[in-house]
Simulated assay, not measured.
Amino acid sequence: MSVYITSTGHYLPGEPIDNDRIEEVLGQINGKPSRLKRRILQSNGIHTRHYAIDQDHNTLISNSEMAARAGQVCLDQSYLSARQVKMLSAATSQGDLVLPGFGSMVQAELGLSDIELHTSHGICSSGMMALKAAYTSLKAGEQPNALVIASELASRLFKATRYEAAGDEVDFNAEFLRWMLSDGAGAMLLEARPRGQCFRIDWIRSFSHADAYPVCMSVGLPTSANRLQSWQDFPTYAEAEAAGALLIRQDVRLLENIVKLGVDGCLRLIDEGLIDIPKVDHLLCHYSSHYFRSRIFDMLQQAGAAIPEEKWYTNLYTRGNTGCASIFIMLDEFRRTQPWQAGQTILCMVPESGRFNNVYMQLTVVCEQG
């Protein structure tokens, strides 16, 4: 049985925030402008992004509300109403609440009744894991359709007060992602039949390397942690915060592995016959920084598997890095703004640096007959 993406949608909170205004919204740590911001922004190439908080650090819209708005946009563009949805598969890095699951909160926001529910938790690849769960359910014939939503609200973690609570000095690994991540949500509707001109999912594959590599991106580890220590092991939440355990961290020393492992997975799929490079018409790759784009291209070129850069599509520079929602928002904007036609092949790549899980998907553009 084939599975099709018949509709997409996305939601971005607030107005675009340019590089000069980031610290107006997030705040200056201890009242001082960042010494790292300019260097990191020059490397990642992001010009504008969206935040769901204002400069007074009020949350203007919750994560589950953003997800629901993206889902509603997707349904509004579809042939189905909310009451016809049979499955909801939702993903985020951090929901509004620790418990219950994010999917439950999104279901309530959308008012979906009597559905099968799935929540996927992780970092950038969790959106694709939610998509794979829905795809598998339809492929098995268990459901005729599924709404898949990925949403991120990272800006809450980047308030200046969060860093000030962890002490006077902010290490590079803790500040790095402050200039990388932003907020937004995207959605896809999956159906077991094509609708108009849509995308058939040919396959979804992933390769996790958590057994071979340490944690690279995390929330919950203190600045100096042993492998068993967690923010929950501290006597009080205040002590965990003071130890920097509630800051989002990126071990930048490990980041180069994301390129190597991402390209390795691509080459493995080529060897398996799933990817035929000359037949790829469009590449949608979720890279978190412009720096990685050239690294990925160069490594593929060295391996004799380069996809010409004119076939690459990204919205990183205007939308920022929205984590697990990035590929969803990207596909929606690609569908709305780029030329594509029946028979074309679209390759999607989502490398994740959390503990190095890389996901790949191939789509074929199809047109419903008669």
Rank of each mutant, 00 (worst) to 15 (best):
A154V: 13
G354A: 13
I149K: 02
S34H: 07
L181H: 01
Q143L: 10
R195G: 10
V280P: 02
F176S: 02
G262S: 06
P194C: 08
T318G: 11
Q28C: 13
T59N: 09
H118L: 10
I329Y: 03
H118V: 15
W312D: 09
P100A: 01
F292W: 12
R162F: 05
P308G: 06
E15H: 11
S155R: 01
S78D: 08
C348L: 13
Y135E: 07
P278Q: 00
Y213R: 09
Y79W: 10
Y79L: 14
L190T: 03
G167A: 06
E239F: 07
H57G: 01
G323I: 05
T236V: 09
K279P: 07
P33Q: 05
G354S: 14
V148L: 01
L153Y: 11
M188V: 11
P100Q: 01
D211R: 13
L300A: 07
R49V: 02
E142G: 12
L99T: 15
G95Y: 05
R253S: 15
D233F: 09
G122C: 07
S326F: 11
Q301L: 12
L153D: 03
R35F: 12
R293W: 14
K37P: 04
L274P: 00
S125M: 09
E15P: 00
L75K: 02
R268M: 12
L221R: 13
M66C: 00
A130R: 01
R253Q: 13
R293I: 15
E65T: 11
A306C: 04
S7Y: 08
F102I: 06
L12D: 02
I46V: 14
A305I: 07
T136W: 08
V148Q: 02
L347D: 00
A166T: 05
T345C: 09
P214A: 06
N226V: 12
Q341I: 10
E333Q: 14
K159E: 12
F297G: 07
S155I: 01
G167N: 03
Y4T: 06
L189P: 04
L267N: 08
P351S: 06
K86I: 02
K132E: 15
A130P: 05
L177N: 08
A166E: 01
D96W: 08
F356R: 04
I5Q: 01
D211I: 07
G244E: 08
I307G: 01
A187W: 02
R249L: 04
G71N: 02
L110S: 04
Q229T: 15
V350C: 07
Q197N: 08
R162G: 04
V365L: 00
D20E: 15
D171A: 07
I327D: 00
D233E: 10
L246E: 11
E256C: 12
A225H: 14
W340D: 00
M361A: 14
M330N: 12
C266W: 10
R38T: 14
P235H: 10
I329F: 03
K311A: 10
